[in-house]
């Protein structure tokens, strides 16, 4: 599954590069796009675990649960830095760096001696990703100022605890879409466009901090300002 997904993305990149050679970006678009934004990453369950002992045969045998835990990576504010290179009027490639400090909320339940407890642990989370952006030029509006786009790619996930100790690393595939709105198109400047961008992504994580090593899905929403130059 994972290998297949990666192959599709690579194919998209190649396709994008091919189109870029045949259709150079339009004047006034800017080849290099720099964006800084803020958003949110939705929380999700990262699984549970049980501390079990071996039960005495006289107690019925099997397992004896000392306590159970359930953990959730809570919704967090995320900062986003993007660097894009426009290959053509339609296609662009982007590199992104995302940072968030999600809280790991852990519930201890059923402790035979302590009952239920809960506590929080802060994580620092970094995602470095690469994306292909497809601008939907046919859907442009407001004199070309409003431009919808689709985006998809792969990233590397790194999660540290509050002592900067690596807790987990993993991969994160994303797919989504959004709009860019040009606020300013200076006619004769190395700055080609200044605008705002809003997007939603579906984020599918493999590995990372997870008690059950399962694939997890979350949603990210971002709003950013961008600057397109050259």
């Amino acid at each position: 599954m994972t290998r297949g997904g990666r192959s599709r993305v690579v194919a998209a990149v190649v396709l994008g590069a091919g189109l870029a050679a045949s259709a150079p970006p339009a004047a006034g678009q800017g080849r290099l796009e720099i964006g800084v934004g803020v958003g949110a990453i939705s929380g999700y369950q990262i699984g549970g675990a049980e501390a079990t002992l071996t039960a005495n045969t006289g107690s019925g045998g099997g397992e004896f649960t000392l306590f159970s835990i359930e953990s959730e990576l809570e919704t967090a504010i995320a900062l986003d830095l993007r660097l894009g290179w426009r290959l053509s009027r339609i296609f662009a490639v982007e590199a992104g760096l995302g940072y968030a400090t999600p809280n790991v909320a852990t519930q201890v339940t059923g402790d035979v001696e302590a009952g239920s407890r809960s506590f929080d642990t802060a994580l620092s989370q970094w995602i470095i990703d690469g994306s292909v952006v497809v601008h939907l030029t046919a859907l442009e509006a407001v004199d070309g100022r409003l431009r919808p786009f689709l985006v998809g790619g792969l990233g590397y996930l790194r999660q540290l605890d509050d002592g900067s100790v690596l807790v987990a690393s993993g991969r994160a595939a994303h797919a989504g879409g959004g709009v860019k709105y040009a606020l300013w198109n200076p006619a004769d400047s190395w700055i080609q466009r200044v605008g705002v961008r809003a997007e939603l992504r579906l984020l599918i994580r493999n590995d990372g901090f997870d008690l059950e090593d399962r694939r997890r899905t979350s949603v990210t929403g971002h709003a950013s300002v961008f600057l397109a130059v050259f």
Binding site: L53, T54, A55, N56, T57, F64, L66
Partner: peptide, 19 residues
């Protein structure tokens, strides 16, 4: 003993148990 999570627990399982 109700349950044990180590071979080095000082109280053994019941007679007849191989746990």
């Amino acid at each position: 003993v109700i349950a044990s999570g180590t071979a080095m627990f000082p109280i053994a399982f019941s007679s007849g148990s191989i746990e």
